[in-house]
Structure formats: C-alpha cells, structure tokens
Amino acid sequence: MTRGPLFHEQTARQRIAALVDPGSFDELLPPPDRITSPYLGQLGIPVSFDDGVVIGRAKIGGKKIYLAAQVGQFVGGAVGEIHGAKLTGLFKAAARDRLPCVVVIESGGVRLHEGSAGEIAIAETMRAIFECRARKVPTIAVIGTDIGAYGGMGILSTCCDFRVMSEHGRLGISGPIVIEKWMGKKAYDSSNRALVWKTSGGKTKYLLGDADALVHDTADAVRDAIAKLLGKSSAVTLKSVKTRQKELARRLKRFGETADPDAVWKGMGVRDIARASLASGPEFAAIARRGK
C-alpha cells in the first residue's frame, strides 16, 4: 500500500525536503546563525542550533508558502523562548506577505525549563495566527507523528484554519500520562495504546471534525492534502465561534458520559469498528462517510 519512508519516522528536515518543491526551501535563521536557547545550558541540557524548529520559505506545487517543522527528538519538540519566537515571526511574516503558513507539529507543548517564556511565546503565536485568519491567509497544521500535538501546541493547532492528520497523529491538551496521574489508572490507562489512539488519534479526531483531512503516513499524501487547502481560508466570526460552541456542547452531551471510545465511533456513524480499525487514511474516511 505505502512504500518509501513513513512520514512519522522522518526527521523535521527530511519532512520539509519531502514536502516542498525540490530546492525551493529557503531556511530562515539556519543552524550557522546559532540562535539557541539561553536557558538550557544553565540547566546542563545541550542546546540545538535551530532550537527544535526549522522555519523558512518554500513552494508547494509552485505556490509560495511559509513553513515550519518541529523537531520532536529535541526535548520532545517543546516550545521554548527562541522556538516560540521563530513560530510567532513566521506567522507574522505570513500575515504581512499574505502567504499561506503551514506548521508541521510534533510537540508536547511548552518547554517546562523555560516555563513563562514558552507560555508567552505560544500565546503570541496564536495571536499571529489570528492575524493571518483576519486577513484570510490560510493557516494549516499538520499532525502526523506519535508525539502529536499536546498542551499549548494542541490548542495552537486548533487556532489554524485546517488540520491535516494521519492515524499516527494525536491531538489533545493534557497528555495521556497527565490524565492518568490526575484521574487514576482506572479512569484512563495511558499504557493502553488502543485506548489512547481511539480517544486522541487522527481517526477519532477526523470523525469528530477536529481534523479536516485524514491522510496516509507519507509525505506525498501530506503534501497533496496541504496543496488542496492552500487556497482556502475560513473566517473567524462571532457566528462561526457560536456555531462551533454549539457543536462542542452537543458533543459533550452525547459522549461526555461514555467510557467506551467505540461508542463514539458508532455514534459518529462507523458501523464496522473492526474494519475501520484496520483501514488507513482515505480508506477510513470512506468507511466513515458510508456509515453516515
């Protein structure tokens, strides 16, 4: 079915090279600039030349975009002061130049070693995303790795116009281990991978409408999904926010009490749970659609 490297196994730089038109990536603040974290060294943790995020200009299908990819292996892709400032600047540049902005997310949220600076950086990036949306500049989040998008980055991804996910991707606010610590292992067993992916994984997020595209685990599939969304944007209006609020209230009423993720799948129209569990990307989307 799929050949070549899997998207979730690639590094941030490999993902960028595989997503954009060959040779079109122009990195901003590249490694030789050595813009690194001012905090990690003091704590005895090695720094990285790009502070865990690669940003720049690129083209997809000939269209100019701004693009960022987080490096999950470096402190869990967590957002520190420099990392966050790079994201903020990128979305601001996108708003200024009216070019779509794509962020490939692989992050647990704020870097705890740089607490307040990281929190503020994420808030500033969200503001920059809303600047883009006010100017009808498309913003797209790609979530296609096991690290997923959690904490501040989970919230940030939902501020974007669209989310492209693969079944490997996970989206949430508190991570599974955090939920288990607070609610107890009986309420949520974070070592139960099936449970974790059925509550926060790409397939479930697609069913619930939190993800706009569910794709195969390859850069080609991700690129095709991005290319389809580049010309679109959705405005943030009082009406759209209220509609969304109603949807969420309905979802809470429907599924708020259930402890069985399969009930959510069934409720969202999946008839054959076993078949849907094995289906991937577009095939899953097709099964889900037929169920409705």
Partner: peptide, 16 residues
C-alpha cells in the same frame, strides 16, 4: 556553505 547531520536527542548528537 554548511551542512547539518543528526538531532540533539537522547544518545544522539548534531554535527554542523
């Protein structure tokens, strides 16, 4: 003028 290999992760390194 430059090349980068590897990432800073546990048991790993980056070389510029």
């Amino acid at each position: 003028p430059w090349a980068l290999a590897g990432v800073v992760g546990s048991g790993n390194l980056e070389v510029l």
